[in-house]
Design a protein around this nucleic acid. Structure first.
Length: 416
RNA sequence: GCGGACGUAGCUCAGCUGGUAGAGCGCCGGUUUGUGGUACCGGUGGUCGCGGGUUCAAGUCCCGUCGUUCGCCCCA
């Protein structure tokens, strides 16, 4: 066993694992396109303040999980722990606040120094969608519909449920937060140790505590509903109505409060019970203040991110490896003819390989192992007669095909 | 960051109460001359995660460390 290992929480993506993740990404990219979202790519590292400012200083992501370092110029940089902040930064830097709305799809690696677990890695991958510059509930509904559409296209929608909540606008949220703090402070002796810390840092998080004692307290805690301003209530009502119009089923869960500071109004999570404690598969919400925080104008926005590894694990069937047509020279036919036919097939869009070294038996064996769809035999005899022997590895049947036909009509010859 | 479990060939694992490692699969080659997935034969393969300690002797006991995994925490 080699002593050089990949860094803790990182993995090489090879074979089936690579194919599963690629399937997730390409499917999401396609569905996002149907909704009119364009793909952006932002740098993998940013100035640290892009994240520290936006995610909230007290969030664990900022306070203890970021890969931050000083570069050779002494500037503090950070490997992106999530995608939304950078998209907002890019919106501002590229002056796209002039042409709203912008509908953005992105994908790529993210980095968080967490304790690795299944479905939770230090370098992991996300897909995400952001709709910047639309304030109406219809936008929220459409963004959620896009998320659902991706899950549906991946064939995992059945294992997943949508949980929905509202945090209201700033005024609602502040009032609610104060009420929660007052409520929990009055009986902080009954709270779990973890939740006493949350009371200081992020009281909303107490609501989704798993501690049994906490849950009893939470059951009687003041609910967001009561603190909604009339505007926030209208928004919340409309959102649910639009979701109905899109035919998206959901359950309201007051505990969906999200971890990052920038959310307001809509929050949602698509969750599954198939991945143990890492059950959140796609989640997001509205973040109307973030673009302004990034130094831009007041741009309302809504979006979500999803974990590629988690979705890849949920895929029911693994994408198949592509099958090749393998050319096996018999004896020593003219090399020029061999190379020409290889290139001609590739130009016609047929995945073609040549069987290297070994006896004919060996090469056949290898073609079988790599699951080739067909084998092409070319010997001096065939070359002289202007034909190939084409063997279907599926049926074992072997036919003679004129070289001309291969040069002009290869795809139909190899179509199953 | 906290607590538990685990860590033997590429893979799945066996190795009793301590005496310097085994199987199956895989991989490589062969069963003569132009044909796979079957069969047969032969071969390759491990400083038992790593580092200490106890012992005449450790894969087997103890400590530490790294990694994986489960729960917590956090979050996608």
């Amino acid at each position: 066993m080699s002593s050089i290992q990949p860094v803790r929480g990182t993995h090489d993506l090879i074979g089936e694992e690579q194919r599963r993740q690629a399937r997730v990404v390409s499917t999401a990219r396609h569905i996002a396109g149907l909704y009119g979202f364009d793909e952006w790519s932002t740098p993998i590292f940013e100035e640290t303040r892009v994240f520290s400012r936006s995610l909230g200083d007290t969030s664990d992501v900022v306070s203890k999980e970021m890969y931050s370092f000083n570069d050779r110029d002494g500037e503090s940089l950070t490997l992106r722990p999530e995608g939304t902040a950078a998209i907002c930064r890019a919106l501002v830097t590229n002056a796209l606040t002039q042409s709203l709305p912008q509908k953005v799809f992105y994908t790529g690696p993210m980095f968080r120094h967490e304790r690795p677990q299944k479905g939770r890695y230090r370098q992991f991958h996300q897909i995400g969608a952001e709709l910047l510059g639309a304030a109406e509930p219809l936008a929220d509904a459409e963004v959620i519909a896009l998320g659902y559409g991706v899950l549906e296209a991946l064939g995992v929608a059945d294992y997943v449920t949508l949980e929905l909540n509202t945090l209201g606008d700033a005024a609602s949220r502040d009032a609610w937060r104060q009420a929660l703090v007052a409520y929990f402070s009055a009986q902080s002796d009954k709270l779990s140790e973890d939740s006493r810390v949350r009371l200081e840092k992020n009281p909303l998080r107490i609501l989704d505590s798993k501690d049994a004692g906490d849950r009893d307290l939470v059951a009687n805690a003041p609910m967001m509903e009561k603190f909604l301003t009339p505007e926030a209530r209208t928004f919340w009502d409309e959102l649910r109505q639009k979701l109905d119009l899109f035919g998206i089923a959901y359950t309201v869960n007051p505990a969906i409060v999200r971890g990052l500071d920038y959310y307001n109004h809509t929050t949602f999570e698509f969750v599954t019970n198939r991945l143990g404690s890492q059950g959140t598969v796609l989640a997001g919400g509205r973040y109307d203040g973030l673009v302004k925080q990034m130094g831009g104008p007041d741009v309302p926005a809504i979006g979500w991110a999803a974990g590629v590894e988690r979705l890849a694990m949920l895929l029911e069937t693994a994408p198949q490896a592509p099958r090749s047509v393998v050319l096996i020279p018999v004896g020593s036919p003219d090399e020029k003819a061999v190379c020409q036919i290889l290139q001609a097939l590739r130009q016609q869009g047929v995945r073609t390989e040549i069987g290297y070294k070994g006896s004919l038996r060996k090469r056949m064996e290898r073609a079988g192992k790599q699951n080739a769809s067909h084998v092409l035999f070319l010997g001096e005899d065939e070359l002289a007669r202007g034909v190939f022997r084409v063997k279907s590895m599926e049926t074992g049947l072997e036919t003679e095909v004129a070289t001309e036909a291969l040069l002009s009509d290869a795809r139909s010859i190899f179509a199953e």
